[in-house]
Nucleic acid binder design. Structure first.
Lengths: 234, 234
DNA sequence: GCCTCGTTTTGCGCTAACGCAAACTACCTG
DNA sequence: CAGGTAGTTTGCGTTAGCGCAAAACGAGGC
C-alpha cells in the first residue's frame, strides 16, 4: 500500500491542530483508491469512510419510490460516508463519482480508536457536520420561501463558489452536471430547470450545454437569487 | 446557584459513557433558568448553550424578508444553541419557549475546556448533530418529492412520536402549536394547513382546536403519509 | 358578562410549476 | 460513418397550492 504524502492533506480542516506524527499515524490506517467517472462508491452498509483527494462525488438520497435528491456534491478535501461517526450502521445516502476520483478510505472499525487517540478528530468532524447542518437548514429555508428560479440561482452560485473554474468570460462549474441533477438539488423537475436555463441563456446570463454550465454574468445571477418573490419581473 | 441533581440528567445521550464525577464537574459549570411561555431565549450572539430540562422550545430561522421556518421543536433532554460547537459566532436560529420551560445554561466559553477534559462530550455531540443532519436531509427529501398533505402527515406523526401524550382516544401533541407553526415546518401556508386539517377532522382522523391537535387515528395518518403522489384519492 | 385580539375557517380567482409527450441534439460506440 | 443512447428543449393542458379577503370562533382580560 503506497504511503500518502502528508503534505497534501495536512492543511485540511479535518486535521487541524494535529502534529505531523499524529497525522502520519492516522494516514497509515488508510488506503487510497481510484474510482472512474460514473462509478458507485459504496455498498449498503457503512464499512468505510472517505476523504476525497481528487475529483467530484455526488451524494444522493433515494425515496422508497425511487426518486432521488442530491444531498451535496463533495469537493476535494472533504470527507463523506461518515455514517458511523454519527452511529448509523447503514449509509443514509449513496455516493457516486461524477468525475474520475481519488479517495482515501478508512475502515469504519478504525474510527473509535482514532477518535480516542486523537480527540481533535471528533472536534473537527463536529465542526464540519455542524456546518453541513446549517447548510441543510438554509436549503430548507430556501425551499420553503423561494420560487424555483431563485433556488436554482442559489444552487448554481453555490456550485460555482465551491467548484467554479474561472474563465475570462465567466465561471464554469468544474464537473459534469445535468439539468436533472440541478432539479434534484432544488426540488423541482428537469423540465423546469431546462426552461429557466434556456431563459437565462437567451438573456446572456449563462452559457450551457450537455452537462456543462458557465455563469457568464454571476453578478446578475446574484441579483436574481436575492430577488424576493414579489419583486416584479423584467 | 442551586446544584443540579445529577440523577436527572445522567441517562441523557449527551453524557453517555461518563463517570458520575465527570458529570458532576460538567454540571458545576452550568446554571439553570426558567423561561415563561412565549419568551425569547437567546440574543444574537452565541454566548451560551442550553440543555432543556422541562418544557418545549421552538427553534426557528428567519429570512431577510422576515419569513420564518421552524427548524425543530426541542424536547426535554435535548441540547440547543450549539453554535459554538460548530465554530459559529452567532446563532443560526432563534429560540423561544412555547411552554414554561427550564433549562441548564453553560457559557460558550466553557465548551473548549469541557471538550478537552471530556472528549466523550464531543463524540456524543457529534452523534446528535449527525442525527439532526440526517433528519434535515429527510425533510429536504420530503419537501422535494411529497405533496403538502403527506408532509403535514409526516410532521404531525413526528411531533406525536417525540412529544405525544397518549390519550385513550388518540395521541395529543403535548404543547401549543398553531396552524402557522405547522405551515412553517412543512413549507406551506397556514391556509393550506387549515384546509387539510379541516378535511381530516371531518373524516375523524384528528380532533383539533386552537393551538391543539389530537391524532385520533394515527394509523390512518400513517397511511396518508406513505401514500405516494400518484396513488389515487378516495 | 362583555370586549378584544389572535387564531382558525372558508370562498374565490390565479398562476407557478408540474406532467406528459414529442422532437431535437450531442456524444459515444462499433 | 451510421446507429444508438443519454441529455436537452419545447409545447400544451392541468392542477395543487398560494394569496387575498372576510367572516367565524374562542380564550383571556377588564
Amino acid at each position: 500500500m503506497a504511503k500518502v504524502d502528508t503534505s497534501l492533506v495536512a492543511h485540511l480542516p479535518l486535521f487541524a491542530g494535529m502534529t505531523p506524527e499524529a497525522l502520519d499515524e492516522i494516514l497509515r490506517e488508510a488506503r487510497s483508491a481510484r474510482y472512474p467517472k460514473n462509478s458507485a462508491m459504496q455498498g449498503a452498509d457503512a464499512q468505510c469512510f472517505f476523504l476525497l483527494l481528487h475529483g467530484h462525488v455526488r451524494a444522493a438520497k433515494t425515496t422508497p419510490a425511487g426518486e432521488q435528491i442530491v444531498v451535496r456534491y463533495v469537493t476535494p478535501g472533504e470527507t463523506f460516508g461518515l455514517a458511523m461517526a454519527i452511529g448509523a450502521a447503514r449509509y443514509p445516502a449513496t455516493a457516486m463519482a461524477v468525475d474520475d476520483s481519488v479517495v482515501l478510505i478508512w475502515p469504519t472499525s478504525a474510527w473509535p480508536r482514532l477518535v480516542e487517540r486523537f480527540p481533535a478528530l471528533a472536534a473537527n468532524t463536529l465542526q464540519t457536520v455542524g456546518t453541513r447542518l446549517q447548510e441543510s437548514h438554509t436549503r430548507i429555508l430556501e425551499m420553503s420561501t423561494q420560487q424555483v428560479e431563485q433556488r436554482i440561482a442559489h444552487a448554481l452560485l453555490r456550485l460555482a463558489k465551491q467548484s467554479g473554474k474561472k474563465l475570462d468570460h465567466g465561471i464554469e462549474i468544474d464537473f459534469p452536471i445535468s439539468r436533472q441533477d440541478i432539479a434534484q438539488m432544488t426540488g423541482t423537475t428537469l423540465h423546469t430547470v431546462s426552461r429557466i436555463l434556456s431563459g437565462w441563456e437567451s438573456q446572456g446570463l449563462v452559457e450551457s450545454g450537455r452537462q456543462r454550465i458557465i455563469l457568464r454574468e454571476p453578478h446578475k445571477i446574484v441579483v436574481l437569487a436575492e430577488r424576493s418573490a414579489d419583486s416584479g419581473a423584467a
